[in-house]
Design a protein around this nucleic acid. Sequence first.
DNA 1: CAGGATCCAATTGTGGATCCGG
DNA 2: CCGGATCCACAATTGGATCCTG
Lengths: 225, 225
Amino acid sequence: VTFEHRAPPESLDALRARANTLVGRRLVEIAWALGGNLEDNALRTKGKAGAVIEAALGASGKGKVHDFPELQVELKTIPLTAAGLPKESTYVCTLKLEEAASLDWHSSWAKQKLSRILWVATDGHHLPLEDRTVRECLFYQCPKEDEARLQSDFEQIVGLISTGRMEEVTSHLGTCMQLRPKARDGAKTKAVRNEDGDMFLTTPKGFYLRPTFTAEILARLRTGQ
Amino acid sequence: VTFEHRAPPESLDALRARANTLVGRRLVEIAWALGGNLEDNALRTKGKAGAVIEAALGASGKGKVHDFPELQVELKTIPLTAAGLPKESTYVCTLKLEEAASLDWHSSWAKQKLSRILWVATDGHHLPLEDRTVRECLFYQCPKEDEARLQSDFEQIVGLISTGRMEEVTSHLGTCMQLRPKARDGAKTKAVRNEDGDMFLTTPKGFYLRPTFTAEILARLRTGQ
DNA sequence: CAGGATCCAATTGTGGATCCGG
DNA sequence: CCGGATCCACAATTGGATCCTG
């Protein structure tokens, strides 16, 4: 699993053009074009499709909010079912529980990431990683209507946490975006202190887009909004 | 399982008033008031709640389209979950497959039955039959918007059958109303001949309202349309 | 059988847990 | 650990099969 990153694209049009050259190609072909491969000994493939697409498009947001910092664009690789619906929820960002009380939607990491997204949809999830293909690339600029729904979900969740009602926050909250565990097995409960000075135990959490919301977005983009 | 039927109600208001006297009562109390009981040796209770409610309200549409022929009202007893959502789909009527080609929505049995419905919703489906209660009674007059959706489902299904494409008709069709098997185990495949003279094998089928559609109807009726 | 529906095995959905590369 | 996501056991849904009464 090695390959070179391409240079960042110089404009949104250049990025979209580059993305469109990937459509229909197998992931292993894309890796070859970068001088690498996808052969490995790993038992699982989590995250590898995303890593290849990132390299091919020149995503380089190391330590930045966006994958393409100059363009303020987030890249999301999403697996589709045969029917063209998202197979999975989409990770957005982690939430620092200790900072919840001081978070505001309009300056949040979540809003920044969700405002402009290049969706790269992949196909063939019954096949080995190499043989999966890029099905379509769709550019999303978050409309006001969607932002209002996302803000509502965000504020409900962050509001409960900041008023000390963490135990009421479940993954069931949010019609577009939910809060779920985010960490590998080892990274379990830790103690955090909120701004009132209260200590509580928790596990790392992240925001995710629900598959139904992503399906709605993709459907609109396909029909030209 | 014996009880007397009450006389038919003389007006829609009388029917609604009579229905409202059942709200909150246990099914066994309703049977007692009719001089009967609900004790029996049957292993299952399918249809018994409906039979008690029919008797108590004076439904008597023997051989007629509606349960209350004078009022042109259909009675539907519907089990609810604790959250107040329908637990089951709702049977509408059977479809005579051999007549499909000559059926028209506006003169159909389905349209007639669905145009005016008294919903009697029951609660407590984790309890024995006797202890289940009547939760609410809601009168539905099918609005034009709903009728258009029902007509669309009906015509899609009937259209496929009447053009000889029975094998394409599945229970997945229809967003409001679907076609499903309707008969007990013994009543299996029989040969029918359609109007083109073609013979085909099939099983008895009936129209059912999907739980999501019924949920929408009930929610609207509760909030006063 | 027709009319009243419910039952329940199989499929779909989802949220808590987990995996990889750097 | 963080950022990239996927995995998968169990809950929710559903549609094919079935049950009772007259």
